[in-house]
């Protein structure tokens, strides 16, 4: 149990920003993002017993995060309404927003990009979000469960599509 706690703490300290960024691709709403972030933490905790070191820890974290996000999308589809908030973790207590490093122009561009990514299909969103996170084609292939060359082709197609749609807006 102590080893599990230690590993969990290490994972969260090292990867919390990455995990939170994944949330941003799947929800526009700040509160929903926090809920999704909580779910990801819970699933990382409960899946830790299954981590055998067969894949890199980073890939493993992305798998849990992406699968949680897809599950979240499914639930949204199911209830077609906002989720009832989990009260086991009071997210406001842990997640805070700071205004001092606020870069309005950057955030506007980011929001345009995110909203364009949000127009993509769920699977395209999974692939491009992992690509934007800096994962290699091999790592994305491991997360999704397909071959690397096909992922490369898919990324190229999505990029072209995004470039076309964002022409004159932020490019």
């Amino acid at each position: 149990m102590i080893q599990k706690e230690k590993l969990f703490q290490e994972i969260i300290v090292d990867n919390q920003e990455r995990i939170f960024r994944i949330c941003c691709y799947y929800s526009k709403d700040a509160e929903e993002r926090k809920d999704l972030f909580q779910e990801m933490l819970i699933n990382i905790w409960s899946s830790l017993k299954n981590f055998k070191g067969e894949s890199a820890l980073g890939t493993w974290i992305y798998r849990v995060s992406v699968n949680t996000a897809l599950n979240f999308v499914k639930k949204e589809l199911r209830y077609n309404q906002h989720f009832e908030k989990l009260d086991i973790i009071q997210s406001d207590k842990y997640l805070k927003y700071e205004d001092d490093s606020y870069n309005k122009e950057f955030e506007e561009k980011l929001n345009i990009l995110l909203s364009q990514i949000n127009q993509l299909s769920v699977i395209d969103k999974v692939i491009i979000s992992l690509h934007l996170e800096g994962l290699s084609g091999k790592e994305i292939a491991e997360v999704v469960g397909v071959t690397e060359p096909n992922i490369r082709v898919k990324i190229h197609r999505i990029k072209s599509q995004l470039k076309e749609e964002l022409k004159g807006i932020i490019i």
Partner: peptide, 14 residues
């Protein structure tokens, strides 16, 4: 796995 600098979580405090 390199950390991406081109996209950051908006106003996320660690």
């Amino acid at each position: 796995m390199k950390d991406s600098n081109n996209l950051q979580a908006p106003n996320f405090k660690k």
